[in-house]
Amino acid sequence: MREIRIHGRGGQGSVTAAELLAESAFEDGLQAQAFPAFGVERRGAPVKAFARLSEEKIRRRSQIYTPNYVIIQDPTLLGTVDVTEGIQDDGLMIVNTSEDKESVDIETQADLITIDATEIALDILGKPIMNTALLGAFSGATGEVSLEAMQRRVQKRFPGKIGEKNAEVMKKAKKVVEE
């Protein structure tokens, strides 16, 4: 089983990202689960969302303490939230930032990649909603979930132009990570 934690701020679509991740993984034939950090969310406040992926049926419903993957949507969280908490040594952290990975303020044994997801989102969507870009990056960096499944799910959830553009964002982010 692989466990994923997404850090963001209220309004950045962390929960939606976790849900899309679970939906896409399920389309790819995996078992999947997604849930928010059960709290009192406010726009702008730090939030967390979680997902589990597995070949087997997922019975576990406790919180996630030792994630394999951590996605950080907002670099301003780095000083305030312990984003590395419990990350496995052979895990991977994906950070949305314009900085390169050497200058990011994270100390971890886990692998680390950075991507300017906000720029991709601004470029294609015209809005700094970067959750789908990070999903594309996750697909590219981990291969856990296919880009095609993610694109189908985002277009199902946001029919029409918005879904199409988000599918494009995902593709672009995947490409950036793979280069």
């Binding site: 976790a18 679970a22 689960q33 997604a34 849930f35 059960f38 419903r61």
Partner: peptide, 10 residues
């Protein structure tokens, strides 16, 4: 509450 109501699963 939450553990089931707010969880996405198949």
């Amino acid at each position: 509450g939450y553990i089931l109501t707010h969880t996405y699963e198949p």
